[in-house]
Computed example of a mutant assay.
Amino acid sequence: MELGAFSVSLAVKDISASRGFYEKLGFAPVMGEEAQNWLIMKNGDYVIGLFQGMFDKNILTFNPGWNTNSETLESFTDIREIQRVLASSGIESGATIDPDSKGPANFSVTDPDGNVILFDQHV
């Protein structure tokens, strides 16, 4: 099962201060708008999202169908299949995606320590 591109979505208090901090670590904005309180930043293959006022806590994010440059993969495991496999393993999500639907969709699960894992397919 291929989960797609991985990133960490950080719940930040001051997006400008966080941007400056991560730029010092070699990250550069590649997507988003600081004025809208969100930025996606990259350093090589490493991706972080900065989100001010959008989440209560940090989230691990997988993007089925994308590589680390947000380019669509020719072949990937569809999010509905990922959700089905997880459910058959006893990992339930809060909302179920219609198995007959196609295209973009998302769901999340929570690990035993309360960490949220978002599966967010854009294609």
Score class of each variant (00 low, 15 high):
G4W: 05
T110M: 12
M41A: 07
G26W: 09
K24I: 02
R19E: 14
D111P: 06
S89Q: 14
F62R: 03
W38E: 03
S70V: 02
D45K: 14
K102Y: 08
L73W: 05
Q52M: 09
Q52Y: 10
G4P: 09
L60E: 02
K42L: 04
G94T: 15
I97W: 00
L3Q: 04
N37H: 15
D111E: 08
I79N: 01
K24T: 09
F21M: 13
A5G: 12
A11R: 00
N67I: 06
V109E: 00
L86Q: 08
V116C: 02
T96C: 04
T110V: 15
M31P: 00
H122L: 13
H122S: 13
K102A: 13
N69L: 13
V30H: 06
S93T: 09
K102S: 15
V12N: 07
K102F: 10
L50R: 08
F6Y: 14
F51Q: 02
F62E: 04
S16Y: 10
P104K: 10
F119G: 02
G53Y: 05
R80Q: 09
G4F: 08
T61P: 00
D111A: 01
I15E: 04
E2S: 15
E33K: 14
V8A: 13
L60R: 01
G44K: 07
W38T: 04
Q36P: 03
Q52H: 05
E92G: 06
L73A: 08
S16G: 11
S18I: 05
K102M: 07
K57F: 00
N63T: 13
D78C: 09
V30K: 11
Y46T: 15
V123H: 01
V123R: 00
V8D: 05
M41G: 00
G20I: 04
S75Q: 14
I97Q: 02
L39H: 08
M1Y: 10
N67T: 07
L39I: 10
F119S: 03
L10E: 01
A95M: 12
P99Y: 06
I48D: 03
G4M: 03
M31I: 03
I117R: 00
L3S: 07
S108H: 07
L73D: 05
G90A: 07
F21N: 07
L73E: 14
G65I: 06
N58V: 04
T61E: 08
G90R: 09
V47W: 12
N115K: 03
A11T: 05
S89W: 11
Y46H: 12
L86W: 13
